[in-house]
Design a binder for these strands. Structure first.
Lengths: 230, 230
DNA sequence: GGGCGGCAAACGTCGGACGTATCTATAGTG
DNA sequence: CACTATAGATACGTCCGACGTTTGCCGCCC
């Protein structure tokens, strides 16, 4: 494993050292191969790994470049990782959300702009209108929480929570909610969060977010228990 | 990009669907290539990507297997991602720690066992004894926080916070601490956290952890400002 | 000045070859 | 019978060379 992994480490080190800043262009693959003492095949594997980690951007026919290294890119991988977590560890993920999301929502109450509140109200209305379409509900739910967290202005936090709230996880929770006729109640919870944010009430925002995550966790337990029986 | 990325998606989907459970063995590369309609080179790139994400475990001379998919493996990539974050976004990371670590430490106060407390006391003693060795301080600091968070029993949370407290980030903070003659004060903060945990006092643990993260953040700001001038 | 076409550069994919590590089954030995 | 040593098969690691396709750019033409 030495050669290819060494190449990965070398490229990564050139980036973190500043030798290859964001936007920089790497030498062509054959030249890079010679420079690092391995074949083009090995370089391609290394580049592919860094591309999948959103560290490099490979443009066919053009060249290979370092990305912006923005957190939204580098933390994208968290989402795919969470998608592969199994059964009980999903409850661990939910516990993390339970710890993080209320505090973050409280912070959002202090920082949210009027325009963002407006947008949030629209999403809430959309959600109410889609109360019988699971697919749309999941979509608006994702947008709602993303908008709230993004209002903190912390892109790292936003990407992290986006990743923790993977699509599969959300889908499972909403499946439980709908089958348990609890979708309406959950939409009301979103409304409570919205009202707290609108009042710029940090503590209330925090509390309402905690109750909401708690509901999600409860339904996830239900769904997981039902799945385990089968 | 279609072929190799398709292969990655296919393998990942076979895993998340349960067709390839943890520990399962994949077909040999040539066979896998034929099965997915591309050359062995392409398969190797796909496998390499999943190996770097700790989804697959490639054993030379033997075969390729699905890992345990434990969160400690899948979230390992978060650490390397954080290592590549630049300047100001490190403050965002610190803000996330500021939100998450106190709550997690409070939870640890409720769940920590006597044996874990004992271990924590030992690490604290080691830290005091190494008060003039930056390298060791960083090492014991890492062990201290890892032990505290691990006491929550939530492996996902532990891996997440481990990743957020990357080695480079820690090194920068401690460099500031030592140059600013604040190492001793910081060790006292660790002691305060230890005492709170020992008293099983959730709120006090939470508060002491917040003060500690706050100190780290302040010194990180100092170091970043000094770096920016140069 | 702007649009069009062709050339060169660079990545995408393929096929085959050979080296090396690992596992296993077999034969041998005490 | 149990254990060891060895030979073969299996599978990944690395390299090389070739060709297709895409993209960017520059010069030509209108």
């Amino acid at each position: 494993m030495a050669l290819t992994d060494d190449a990965i480490a070398k490229i990564r080190s050139m980036i973190s050292s500043g030798e290859l800043p964001p936007g920089a262009r790497l030498p062509p693959e054959p030249q890079l191969a010679a420079q690092m003492g391995l074949s083009r095949s090995g370089v391609r594997e290394a580049v592919k790994v860094l591309e999948s980690a959103r560290v490099l951007d490979v443009r066919r026919g053009d060249g290979t470049y370092v990305t912006s290294l923005a957190p939204r890119l580098l933390l994208e991988g968290l989402g795919v990782a969470v998608e592969l977590l199994r059964g009980d560890t999903l409850l661990e993920v939910m516990e993390v959300r339970r710890m993080l999301e209320p505090v973050a929502t409280g912070l959002a109450a202090l920082r949210m702009t009027d325009a963002q509140l407006e947008e949030l109200g629209q999403i809430l209305a959309d959600m109410r209108a889609a109360a019988d379409d699971a697919e749309k509900l999941i979509q608006f739910d994702t947008a709602f929480h993303h908008t709230v967290i993004a209002a903190t202005g912390n892109e790292t936090l936003t990407s992290l929570l986006d990743g923790l709230s993977g699509r599969t996880l959300r889908a499972r929770v909403w499946r439980g909610l709908i089958e348990g006729n609890a979708a309406h109640k959950t939409i009301d919870e979103h409304h409570a969060i919205y009202l707290a944010l609108r009042s710029r009430d940090q503590l209330l925002a925090q509390a309402s977010a905690l109750m909401h995550v708690n509901t999600s966790e409860a339904w996830l337990r239900t769904v997981l228990a039902a799945t385990a029986e089968t």
